[in-house]
Design a protein around this nucleic acid. Structure first.
Lengths: 149, 149
DNA sequence: CTTGTCTCTACAGTCGCTTTAGACTGTAGG
DNA sequence: CCTACAGTCTAAAGCGACTGTAGAGACAAG
């Protein structure tokens, strides 16, 4: 399955992942150590492109690097059953749904702000008023905000 | 407008922002340097709570810290007009809409994945197949992924 | 041979905080 | 008063997921 070896730049283009990011993935153990040319340049087969595409796709879907590591580990134990992977996908889906809900709330609030901002002086700016408006609506939980965006 | 001075813990509770985060905001110049008690503890008036609520709300809406600094600066020059603030809100709204669109695509893909995963062995897991599926669908732009989530 | 593009390593920077460590302060109960 | 214990202080390191930089070597095309 491995055609002629490719340099890092080529698989970067092929997989749509930056060169530096590929090296980073290697450093955190997502990509494994590739062969090297005599002069020390990394050489990859097409399996590396597939792996990178897998990683990129999973990242695009919002999977954390740790989850991806798990998925890759599961992939290499084909006798296991699908349940773990299904569970990961479901968690991710719940996560995405929550983010969407949050963002939709932000969207309507921002729309309201923009609609009500009809010029005028700062002192009366509805946008600032909206922001200053400290209704404790939902969550005084002090928790991490990383779901917000 | 300034009632009896409050310790950092109290305004933390009042504004829903962690103590450490308040100190951090001070360190990056979002909050200004408060008075201190004899023993060196920070003392705030209720205006600090309002400022914190403003910051928190803006952060919840996805405004970057730099934008918030700008908004605060604008607030203190009340002769300026509303246009700059309106523009910031519009930028933010466009940003949020894009995030929502991206997330909706992820949602339907994840839904499809979960639907098609009906048990079985890893080798045939549809979720993994979806992830391995490297259709270059949209964006091989190598750009920053921070819009993704 | 020269030019220009890759590639290498190692490390610092990004953003928006959170965590840690160790010391000090303020307060309530006994 | 003493003791607990919660709150506060500073400075610095850590997080996730990369990105950017510097300086040097490698390789392909003209």
């Amino acid at each position: 399955m491995r055609g002629k070896p490719m340099t890092i730049g080529r698989i970067s283009k092929a997989a749509g992942v930056k060169v530096t990011t590929i090296r980073y993935y290697e450093s955190i153990g997502l990509m494994g150590t590739p062969d090297r040319s005599e002069s020390g340049q990394r050489l990859y087969g097409s399996d590396a492109v597939e792996r990178l595409s897998f990683i990129r796709h999973a990242r695009d879907l919002g999977f954390a690097v740790d989850s991806i590591r798990d998925l890759i580990a599961l992939q290499t134990t084909p006798e296991a059953d699908c349940a773990a992977i299904d569970a990961a996908a479901r968690r991710q889906l719940a996560n995405v749904r929550e983010r969407i809900a949050r963002l939709r709330a932000l969207q309507s609030e921002l729309e309201r702000m923009v609609r009500s901002c009809e010029g005028g002086v700062i002192a009366t700016c509805a946008v600032l008023a909206s922001l200053a408006d400290h209704d404790q609506c939902a969550s005084d939980d002090h928790g991490p905000r990383d779901l917000a965006l």
